[in-house]
Simulated scan of single mutants.
Amino acid sequence: MERNVTLIALFAALIAALGLIPPIALGFGVPITAQSLGVMLCGTVLGAKRGTLAVLLFLLLVAIGLPLLSGGRGGLGVFAGPTAGFLVGFPIGAFVIGLTVEKMRVGNLAVIAGLAAMIGGIVVVYLFGILGFSFVTGKGVGASTTIMAPFIPGDVIKAIIAGVLTQALYKARPASVLSRA
């Protein structure tokens, strides 16, 4: 129990720390942040339940006003802004990622974790993000999808990184990858 609480807090801190990394511009000018990589790692490393709890803890800290989101944002206002759907999608995405890694026991862990991160961290999170953006801005779902689409290549890169990091951690310390325990 104590180990679980520690890991949940540690991964919530990891998401926050990744938000401190300045945005990196892809070759075609779209800035990407590292924060969603933390969400992906919550699922691939901690599994469905613990990964979701880590993301929920992070969001609770944001909600009480800590400036932990990329760009130093925090407070309840971020949950009413154009990116609020992504925040809602984060814990659901972490759950889907963790569940996928837990259930897919056959094959290369880097590939499984990378694909799980793409399913939960891109498909699921973007579903909520696009719908939330559409709702808040009043733009149609098609227009919102067009606006968000340029950010997907950066998230694919993060999903691949999550897969590689999860595999490396599993090789170094198999017991530390709780999604495989």
Rank of each mutant, 00 (worst) to 15 (best):
D155E: 13
I160S: 03
G138I: 00
Y126T: 09
K139G: 14
S134I: 02
I161Y: 03
A143S: 15
G140L: 04
S134A: 09
Y126F: 13
I157D: 04
D155N: 11
I161L: 10
G140H: 00
V136F: 02
V156Q: 05
F128E: 10
I161V: 14
V156S: 12
V124G: 03
A149S: 13
T146Q: 15
K139W: 13
F133W: 11
G154M: 03
G129W: 02
G140Y: 02
K139D: 11
A149P: 09
M148F: 13
V141H: 10
I160Y: 03
G154Y: 10
G142Q: 09
P153R: 06
G154H: 07
G132R: 02
A159F: 02
I147M: 15
K139L: 14
I152Q: 04
L131P: 07
A149W: 13
V136E: 08
I157W: 02
S134W: 06
G129T: 00
G132N: 06
I161G: 05
I160H: 08
T145W: 11
I161R: 01
F133C: 12
T137R: 06
L131M: 14
V125F: 05
L131A: 15
L127T: 15
V136C: 04
G138N: 01
I152W: 08
V125G: 09
Y126I: 07
A159G: 09
K139N: 15
F135W: 15
L131S: 13
F151V: 06
A143N: 12
T145A: 14
F135K: 14
V136H: 04
V156H: 08
M148S: 14
I160K: 02
K158I: 11
I157S: 04
V156L: 14
M148P: 05
F135E: 13
S144R: 06
V141A: 10
P153L: 04
D155V: 06
G129K: 03
D155Q: 08
V124E: 04
P150T: 09
S144C: 07
A143V: 15
A149D: 06
G132Y: 11
L127W: 11
